[in-house]
Design a protein around this nucleic acid. Structure first.
Length: 807
DNA sequence: GACTCACTGATTTTT
DNA sequence: TCAGTGAGTC
């Protein structure tokens, strides 16, 4: 993240430092030069940094410098000698936030940050504590942490054992139910009987208890347990808790509005010691209620921590006046907030725009054109973001950008460690690391396909249960008997022997080498090499990345221990590409220009939020809108489509109520080029009869008269054949309907067929090609620069020649 | 045990 | 519309 308003690196020059130890130095201690880390803080920020004693709640609105306050506070505690680095607990929600915090503290205090073992996520600190006291919560050392996938498989087994129809009561549902209980700090015995009865005709509570028992038997915990077991540890062992009370002199919590009950309880137990707990958050940015976050935690802070001070940060350093005013006016429609009034001393800037489009396709085209205009005007693509409510919206933009040849990057989506190939690879390594890791063994026993089916797996299970052995052992026993068919027996024996061999090799070679050998010899790499689908290449690349990511670790178990908690990769960061992501994953980020498409009733606010959570749901959606708008520094552009395809059916839509909640004075309504917009298309939403969006303003007010566009026009001659993207792809996309407002020469895609050489296509029919999106295929037809390709997986498609390469 | 076809359901996502 | 899943067939 970049902060353009970073404090000056140099201390104020006009104050010479007093001679060390001199009388003057001591005498002027109170009026000592402002330490570096305090420079440039506004009075409220400074107060938040310097109020060290007792509970403190910092209500930090969007863009008010909350991370800066947190980091400066750590620096202040250290420089005042109030605590050693190891006596400060700093908790964040994500690994990314923890990493950034660490970097920023490092920038202030240097290597002292290395002595801060207690800076991390709730979960990573939770594990740390559990590992130290595992025996007190009934775990053996080296317990494993299950991810969601493992959890589901375990629950499926339980459901099957209980003869519960998985069709009616899916394991997924049970997993999220249990998760919900854990988020609320409820262990099986605490679940209210009525609630436990909801699942599977009254067996929910029992299943939860059985699940916990299975976890213990496997010497495993899930994510929820990392906190829940911690709470139990503290409650049942006051001496252990006292030890942590003594240790943690200061506690700092980031994004407090996102804490759930379990995290709150955990924190409160720890905070009872020094009482120097500082929570930073913004109730207006609480958007994770659906996964257990309790806004109440922040609303109740003062009563939970008696004597608490509350400091509000309301001076916004990020956005221009119009953007800020729009966001503030919108969020003011929420009740039940602590209330902050953001203000900025910067310029008013550009108004927030609302643009109507005929349908989602036109919406994507309009956004694409605006981005191209911005790009020509010299804006960096990485400073442009598209923030959507739901991920299905991304597709249309991706398609468009591929057509335009516009570099983009999707943020979020399945995370690295969630990818099947990574989990498979990890499962192999887990099996090597511990022969008792049954879930891992089960995962890979038939990956790649070895002809080991359900029946065989069941046999192994039976032996394991009867003899009380882990699956790997049971398999070995089974292969020594006559029970299996010779072929299966041979396969399994080979596998068990391989694990034995790898375990031997683990002693003599580095863990990265070992990983490569395991993936090779198991046939796993080969499996993907043979796969001809579009993703295969990426998956192999991911496997390489996995091995690379092992390097910094000392050994295999060290790597595996951290992997389940910290496994996000910053792949491709830094390249200049448009950022596409959901509103949720945009929290905490900022961009010069933010596009906010899909502001329609049902999508945003999302129908499901309204149906399931009613008013609370609506308010959370509104906070999401607030988060979206406040991501923008200079330009926020909202889009509405009057028609959108939902589940394959075209529906006409009603503009979002949030649009009517924006302040007139700060918003400019535009019409999408093409004139097809939805203005006056019979919208009767809202209780005011006519919405102001029914009177779209004349085109003169369009975004293309903005300074950016004017600059773009004057630059056009130079940039049209610009350096960024070659050839016709840039124009190739601009063939959409309605050329009335088209800038530059209108180019119909077909006229681009003859490229400069005038030569025929570089491809021949029958040739094998690879397409970034559709994978491998065979050319079946050529029409100028367009190829008809029969893709192995995606079927027949017409694609531009530039997007395929020879396979 | 592997492959194919029909069915279902479809926000947001971290650890 | 479409992807992911489970039952049914070879």
């Amino acid at each position: 993240m970049t902060d353009p308003r970073r404090r000056p690196a140099e201390p104020a020059p006009e104050r010479p430092a007093p001679r060390a130890g001199g009388i003057a130095a001591r005498a002027s201690a109170a009026a000592a030069p402002t330490p570096d880390y305090l420079n440039g803080l506004n009075p409220e920020q400074r107060e938040a940094v310097e109020t060290l004693d007792g509970p403190l709640l910092v209500l930090a609105g969007a863009g008010t410098g909350k991370t800066r306050v947190l980091t400066a506070r750590v620096a202040h505690i250290l420089s005042q000698g109030r605590a050693y680095p190891s006596q400060i607990l700093v908790v964040t929600f994500t690994n990314k936030a923890a990493r950034e915090m660490k970097e920023r503290i490092h920038a202030m205090v240097g290597d002292q940050v290395e002595g801060m073992p207690w800076l991390g996520t709730f979960h990573s600190i939770g594990v740390r504590i559990l590992r130290r006291h595992h025996e007190l919560v009934g775990l053996k050392s080296g317990f494993t942490i299950l991810d969601t996938d493992d959890q589901i498989r375990l629950l499926k087994q339980l459901l099957a054992a209980e003869n519960i129809d998985e069709k009616r009561w899916p394991a997924r549902l049970l997993a999220s139910t249990i998760d919900g209980w854990k988020n609320r700090g409820l262990s099986p015995k605490d679940v209210p009987p009525g609630e436990g009865a909801v699942f599977a005709n009254g067996r929910g509570g029992t299943l939860y208890a059985a699940y916990q028992a299975r976890l213990k038997a496997l010497n495993a915990v899930d994510f929820g347990d990392l906190l829940l077991e911690g709470i139990r540890l503290f409650r049942e062992n006051p001496d252990v808790l006292a030890e942590y009370h003594k240790r943690f002199k200061y506690l700092l919590v980031d994004e407090y509005q996102d804490t759930n009950v379990a995290q709150y309880l955990w924190l409160r137990l720890l905070a009872q010691g020094s009482k120097n707990v500082c929570c930073v958050g913004d109730d207006d940015q609480s958007i994770y209620g659906w996964r257990g976050a309790e806004v109440d935690n922040i609303l109740r802070f003062e009563s939970d921590f008696p004597g608490a001070r509350v400091i509000r940060l309301e001076r916004n350093y990020r956005s221009t006046g119009h953007i800020l005013a729009s966001a503030a006016h919108l969020i003011a429609h929420n009740e039940g907030r602590l209330g902050k009034t953001l203000f900025s001393e910067g310029e008013d800037g550009e108004q927030v725009t609302v643009t109507g489009a005929w349908d989602s396709g036109e919406e994507a085209r309009a956004v694409g054109e605006e981005i191209e205009a911005l790009q020509r005007a010299g804006h960096k693509l990485s400073e442009i973001a598209i923030l959507v409510r739901a991920s299905f919206q991304m597709r249309e933009f991706e398609d468009r950008f591929v057509t335009l040849g516009l570099p983009y990057r999707v943020i979020g989506g399945p995370r690295f460690y969630e990818r099947a190939e990574i989990r498979d690879a990890l499962a192999y390594l887990r099996c090597v690391n511990s022969s008792a890791d049954d879930l891992a063994f089960e995962r890979i026993v038939n990956v790649p396909k070895r002809g080991i089916g359900d029946a065989t797996v069941k046999q192994i299970h039976d032996v394991a249960r009867a003899a009380g052995l882990p699956l790997q052992e049971a398999t070995r026993v089974l292969t020594e008997s006559e029970e299996l068919k010779p072929k299966v027996r041979g396969t399994l024996r080979g596998l068990v022997e391989a694990f034995g061999r790898w375990r031997e090799q683990a002693r003599v070679m580095s863990h990265t080498e070992l990983a490569e050998i395991v993936l090779d010899e198991s046939g796993y790499t080969e499996m993907w090499q043979k796969d001809r689908s579009a993703e295969a290449a990426g998956r192999l690349e991911n496997l390489k990345e996995l091995v690379r990511s092992m390097e910094p670790f000392e050994n295999l178990s060290g790597f595996l221990e951290h992997i389940s908690l910290v496994m996000d990769t910053d792949n491709g960061a830094g390249e200049d590409a448009v950022q596409v992501m959901t509103l949720h994953s945009a929290k905490g980020l900022e961009f010069d220009t933010v596009f906010l498409p899909g502001w329609e009733e049902g999508l945003f606010p999302h129908q499901r939020a309204l149906d399931e959570q009613g008013k609370a749901g609506l308010e959370e959606e509104r906070r999401l809108a607030y988060v979206g708008i406040t991501r923008a520094r200079a330009s926020a552009r909202i889009f509405v489509a009057s028609n959108r395809r939902i589940h394959g059916m075209w529906n006409s839509t009603v503009p979002s109520r949030f649009l009517d909640e924006l302040p007139d004075a700060h918003v400019r309504v535009e019409e999408s080029r093409g004139g097809a917009g939805w203005g006056g298309s019979g919208y009767g939403g809202g209780s005011y009869g006519q919405s102001r969006f029914d009177r779209a303003e004349p085109f003169a007010a369009s975004s293309y008269s903005t300074p950016g566009w004017q600059r773009a026009q004057s630059n056009r001659g130079r940039t049209d054949s610009g350096p960024s993207r070659g050839g016709f792809s840039e124009r190739g996309g601009r063939y959409d309907a309605g050329g009335s407002a088209r800038r530059g020469p209108m180019v119909i895609e077909g006229t681009l067929v003859a490229t400069s050489t005038g030569a025929a296509s570089a491809f021949n029919t029958g040739e094998r090609v690879f397409h970034i999106k559709f994978g491998y295929g065979e050319v079946t037809g050529i029409d100028g620069n367009k190829l008809t390709v029969q893709f192995d997986k995606a079927g027949e498609k017409r694609v531009l020649e530039t997007f395929v390469e020879k396979a």
